[in-house]
Amino acid sequence: MVGYSRCSSGNKHRPRMSLESVRHFLAAHAPDIAIIELEHSTATVELAAQHHGVAPGQIAKTLSLRAGDREVLLVTRGDARLDNKKAKAVFGGRVKMLPADEVAAVTGHPVGGVCPFGLATPLPVYCDVSLRAYDEVLPAAGSTHSAVRIAPLRLAELVGAQWVDVSQEAA
């Protein structure tokens, strides 16, 4: 059975409110996890890796996807690419990225700050097995300037994610 991320109430679609929804989620479910806020943008894998001093693969990117008639979130390592054949088999049909305006509306987070925490809408969350290559990964935290450091297994547990294998091997 697929888990659903716990959502926060009253989430607005502005970046600051998005960060606050993540802060609220973590306070309620993982108060030991601190949000890292930087002055520099971490909206891309490359920028995030550079500013956090980690390998690009250690950045946990959250993809907002449409799988058939439903929206899902997929968290994968930053340097992995979605394997369309594997994704089609796992999700039961063609998978495509959501447009940016739909991403913000469904998740409550801006593109570049999307994460599975503090969502505006409960969504099925999947974690790609590629994340397990690292003891610690850095997903965004609701804004293009924030992230958290977390073990992949704990991330999946916190959001009730199902583990899947839908990415290509990292180059």
Results as ranks from 00 to 15, higher is better:
Val72Cys: 02
Val129Met: 02
Leu65Trp: 03
Ala80His: 07
Gly92Ala: 10
Ala104Trp: 02
Ser21Ala: 15
Leu119Asn: 08
Val90Phe: 08
Leu82Gln: 04
Trp163Met: 00
Leu158Val: 02
Met17Trp: 11
Gln168Gly: 11
Val72Glu: 01
Pro124Gly: 15
Gly160Asp: 10
Pro139Arg: 14
Gln162Thr: 14
Cys115Val: 12
Ile36Asp: 12
Ala87Trp: 05
Ile36Val: 14
Asp69Ile: 00
Arg6Ser: 12
Arg132Tyr: 08
Pro99Phe: 09
Tyr134Asn: 11
Ala49Val: 11
Ala105Glu: 08
Leu119Gly: 07
Leu155Trp: 03
Ile59Met: 07
Ala156His: 02
Ala28Arg: 07
Pro15Asn: 13
Ala28Ile: 05
Gly93Leu: 03
Gln58Ser: 10
Gln162Tyr: 02
Lys85Pro: 00
Gln50Gly: 08
Lys12Asn: 10
Ile36Phe: 10
Leu38Ile: 05
Arg149Lys: 00
Ala170His: 12
Gly10Ser: 13
Ser18Pro: 05
Pro15Lys: 08
Asp128Thr: 12
Val166Arg: 00
Gly3Trp: 04
Leu65Pro: 01
Glu102Asn: 05
Ala49Glu: 07
Ile59Gln: 05
Pro139Glu: 15
Ala171Lys: 01
Arg94Leu: 01
Glu71Gly: 12
Gly53Pro: 04
Leu153Ala: 12
Val72Trp: 00
Glu37Met: 03
Ala161Trp: 00
Lys61Arg: 05
Asp83Arg: 04
Val164Asn: 06
Glu37Asn: 09
Gly160Tyr: 04
Gly53Leu: 04
Phe117Met: 02
Glu157Asn: 09
Gly93Arg: 02
Val114Asp: 05
Leu123Ala: 07
Ala89Cys: 00
Ala27Thr: 06
Ala147Leu: 10
Thr62Asp: 04
Ser41Cys: 10
Gly92Thr: 07
Ala67Asp: 07
Ala104Lys: 06
Ala43Glu: 14
Ile36Cys: 11
Pro31Tyr: 11
Val2Ala: 14
Val45Ser: 06
Arg66Val: 09
Arg154Val: 13
Pro31Ser: 12
Val159Lys: 05
Arg16Ser: 15
Glu169Ser: 13
Phe91Tyr: 10
Asp32Ser: 15
Asp32Thr: 14
Ala151His: 09
Trp163Ser: 04
Pro99Asn: 04
Val164Cys: 05
Leu74Thr: 10
Tyr134Cys: 06
